[in-house]
Simulated scan of single mutants.
Amino acid sequence: MSTLHIFSKPLNYYSANQLENLISLDDRVLLLGDACFASKQFKQFSDALLVLEEDAHVRAIKLSHNETPISYNEFVALTLTSTQLITW
């Protein structure tokens, strides 16, 4: 199991340099809220980003092939199966 990193704001809100050292390759990165707009910026942390499907839909964001949409039920399941949760 891995750490689930949950982002709700675009990457420029955070210090990207610090994040590089805190997110490992086997961690999962989930984008929700306005972070969905900045998925290309978050690619540096994970090849396969998770995006909350409803938030992307409400913001009329089309997901690319390497972005996985997840439902609220899948989001809850991820929180239960992850070793650690970090909400940024």
Score class of each variant (00 low, 15 high):
22 L>C: 11
62 K>V: 11
48 A>Q: 09
24 S>H: 14
64 S>L: 08
36 C>E: 07
72 Y>H: 14
16 A>T: 04
68 T>A: 07
47 D>L: 05
37 F>D: 04
59 R>K: 13
64 S>M: 00
6 I>E: 01
23 I>G: 09
57 H>T: 15
16 A>Q: 03
42 F>L: 00
44 Q>G: 03
11 L>C: 05
54 E>I: 14
29 V>P: 00
41 Q>W: 01
29 V>C: 09
69 P>S: 10
13 Y>R: 11
30 L>N: 02
24 S>E: 10
48 A>G: 00
45 F>A: 03
21 N>Y: 05
60 A>P: 05
74 E>G: 10
67 E>P: 03
57 H>W: 13
57 H>I: 11
27 D>K: 04
26 D>Q: 07
70 I>L: 07
42 F>W: 00
26 D>H: 12
64 S>C: 06
22 L>Q: 15
26 D>S: 13
44 Q>C: 10
23 I>S: 02
64 S>F: 04
55 D>M: 11
26 D>Y: 08
55 D>Q: 08
66 N>W: 07
25 L>S: 07
55 D>R: 15
10 P>W: 11
30 L>S: 05
8 S>N: 10
42 F>P: 02
50 L>N: 03
24 S>T: 12
59 R>Y: 11
51 V>E: 04
11 L>Y: 08
16 A>C: 02
63 L>D: 03
38 A>W: 02
62 K>P: 06
28 R>T: 11
20 E>W: 01
72 Y>L: 09
36 C>W: 10
16 A>D: 01
17 N>M: 07
71 S>Q: 12
34 D>F: 15
50 L>K: 01
58 V>A: 12
54 E>H: 14
62 K>M: 05
74 E>T: 08
69 P>R: 06
56 A>C: 05
18 Q>K: 02
55 D>V: 15
66 N>P: 06
37 F>H: 06
20 E>N: 02
32 L>T: 15
71 S>E: 11
63 L>P: 02
16 A>W: 00
14 Y>P: 03
7 F>I: 05
27 D>F: 12
54 E>L: 15
49 L>H: 10
14 Y>Q: 04
53 E>T: 07
69 P>I: 13
12 N>Y: 07
67 E>L: 01
51 V>S: 04
19 L>Q: 10
23 I>H: 00
41 Q>L: 06
40 K>W: 00
57 H>M: 13
64 S>W: 00
18 Q>H: 05
20 E>Y: 00
4 L>R: 08
23 I>Y: 00
45 F>K: 03
44 Q>E: 12
45 F>L: 04
24 S>F: 04
58 V>H: 12
38 A>I: 13
40 K>A: 01
31 L>H: 05
4 L>H: 06
41 Q>A: 13
50 L>P: 03
33 G>K: 10
68 T>G: 12
46 S>G: 02
38 A>C: 15
28 R>A: 13
6 I>W: 03
22 L>E: 10
32 L>N: 10
42 F>Q: 01
57 H>R: 07
37 F>Q: 01
50 L>C: 04
34 D>Q: 15
61 I>M: 02
71 S>G: 00
69 P>V: 10
23 I>F: 01
13 Y>K: 12
5 H>G: 11
65 H>R: 07
51 V>N: 06
60 A>H: 14
24 S>Y: 06
5 H>F: 09
72 Y>D: 06
50 L>M: 07
10 P>L: 11
17 N>W: 14
12 N>A: 09
47 D>H: 08
18 Q>G: 13
26 D>T: 04
29 V>G: 06
73 N>C: 08
38 A>L: 05
7 F>W: 11
56 A>T: 12
